[in-house]
Amino acid sequence: MNTSIQPNGKKSLAEQAWAGAVGLVVGLKATLRTMFERKVTVSYPVQKVNVSPRWHGLLALPIDQETDNDKCIICFQCERVCPDRCIHIEATGKAKDRLLTRFDIEMDKCCYCGLCVEVCPTEAIVFVPHYEASTYNRANLLYDLDDLHRAAPKEPLGTGVVKVRRTR
């Protein structure tokens, strides 16, 4: 432990003044050194930082290029596992012909835990590395099927979030 500490207080005024001056110089030296180092801050709205591929950002249902539809098989696993119960799925039809009629995520309730992404058997629901979701109106934070499709990355998902996640 770095300790060159003497109890304060039992010193004369001159000693205290001297100690203060030394402390000031030592402190300023450290500050001055930092002043000439590279900056660590970014000016946010202009510059942006890159997030990691595992980033827990907004959720999306990526479009599969082959079928031109999302990969959801309507198993309700994500709905069931969500701790905030903010995914709402409805579907019509039976077995193979099941059709997604509603897939809502209340993004204002979502806690970005990633459990839905974890349990999804087909990687139909993914995180996208995007973090600017604030809005003036809470109603905007209800993401329905279209929004989730639109939010998905444009490129084919072979290089998307999930695959990166699994191979790395």
Binding site: I5, N8, G9, Q16, A19, V22, G23, V26, G27
Partner: peptide
């Protein structure tokens, strides 16, 4: 450098 040896910091914590 910044805190441990600083007389003001010491006076306020010791």
């Amino acid at each position: 450098e910044l805190l441990t040896g600083n007389p003001i910091f010491l006076a306020r914590t010791q």
